[in-house]
Write a protein that binds this DNA or RNA. Structure first.
Lengths: 186, 186
DNA sequence: GCAAGGACTTTGAGCGTTCAACTATTCCCG
DNA sequence: CGGGAATAGTTGAACGCTCAAAGTCCTTGC
């Protein structure tokens, strides 16, 4: 990735040339990424793309579902009664209501999930993981866990894993907070 | 089951997917993630999902293109003559040839890219970034860089950024190596 | 030379996601 | 109580991606 500095003739992409001088936009100053940060960011993009593609392929071949559906099954499997209100399930899995609705529809067709209407709030619906769905999850879990271990945790030290978790939790919390109260400055 | 793609029902069932502890099964060992590893992994999933969704939304609204298209433009902008052979561009951006072909077609429609046929290898094609495409990239860059900085690098220390880069490079290299020579252990 | 196999690229179908409506119900406040 | 606003969930179209299959051209061995 690379394209280390000054390859050939052209401008290496560190932002437009004019930005060297004029760093202002409508809302203030543009602080480009430093070379080190760029390298990190490109590693981020490459690693996550490769990783998710690999996990997706693995899970699709062995279990026939995408990773996001797997996450839905996991969330349900951990809930009391294996049943969660749609809204809460959307929050847990960080999906949009729309995505969740489509996904649940799809999983309902395979018989792994069931929609249950809510007695106290007639707008509402629950998603319930069926025994068949739970069995499917049990069958899919070892392969998926093995893949995650193989591509991530077997490659880094426990200390690095800890640090990775801490870093990603910070990033996650930042985005989560922003999602909940939009318009609040850092 | 609606004939999903790789729908291999009735997979081998490799032992109970119970247990947070490590255990063995008949035909091989499944090493589950430790509680700490699970927490890290869930942070990974949540952070990357939120982050990419946010960047996608930002870039889509401000520039009208997905992040992956942006990466293609960046790669081209750094190349001599702003021109790269399709195969090499696919490697650089870690896309499948198919994805790249679709993407280039799309970007060609907007006039940001141009396909140029190769004289010495008539199977081949180059992708060339037009002036219009370069201008579009210049216009999109500040917003994108700002978003990346805001959600990632402004939230972590430089030391953490370094460590993050090192960790992700290891993961990336592992997957890269595996992609090139499948079947090689570790 | 020539055939067989490999490399480069494109195409079309199917799937999951997003986005923008839309329906239905509940909440809130005067 | 009544009516507007908020909440829960669904739907359909558009779009990007994957996969399989194909077309086109190059290369290698004989």
């Amino acid at each position: 990735m690379a394209a280390r500095r000054g390859s050939t003739k052209d401008k290496r992409y560190e932002g437009p040339a004019r930005a060297e001088k004029n760093e202002k936009t409508a809302d203030g100053e543009v602080r480009w990424l430093s070379p080190a940060e760029q390298e990190t960011w490109r590693a981020f993009l490459a690693a996550t793309r490769l990783l998710f593609e690999e996990l997706e392929r693995q899970l699709q071949q062995e279990a026939g579902i995408p990773v996001t559906y797997y996450e839905i099954l996991v969330a349900l499997s951990e809930a009391p009664d294996r049943t969660i209100r749609m809204r809460d399930l959307a929050d847990l899995t960080r999906s949009s209501p729309s995505r969740l609705s489509h996904a649940v529809s799809r999983l309902e067709e395979t018989g792994w999930l069931k929609r249950v209407s809510c007695a106290t709030d007639r707008r509402g619906a629950f998603a319930h993981l069926t025994d068949k769905g739970f069995a499917a999850l049990e069958a899919a879990a070892p392969g998926h866990a093995t893949a995650v271990r193989r591509h991530v945790f077997d490659r880094i030290t426990p200390k690095q894993a800890d640090e990775l978790g801490r870093i990603l939790a910070v990033i996650r919390d930042g985005l989560d907070a922003e999602g909940r109260c939009p318009g609040v400055p850092t």
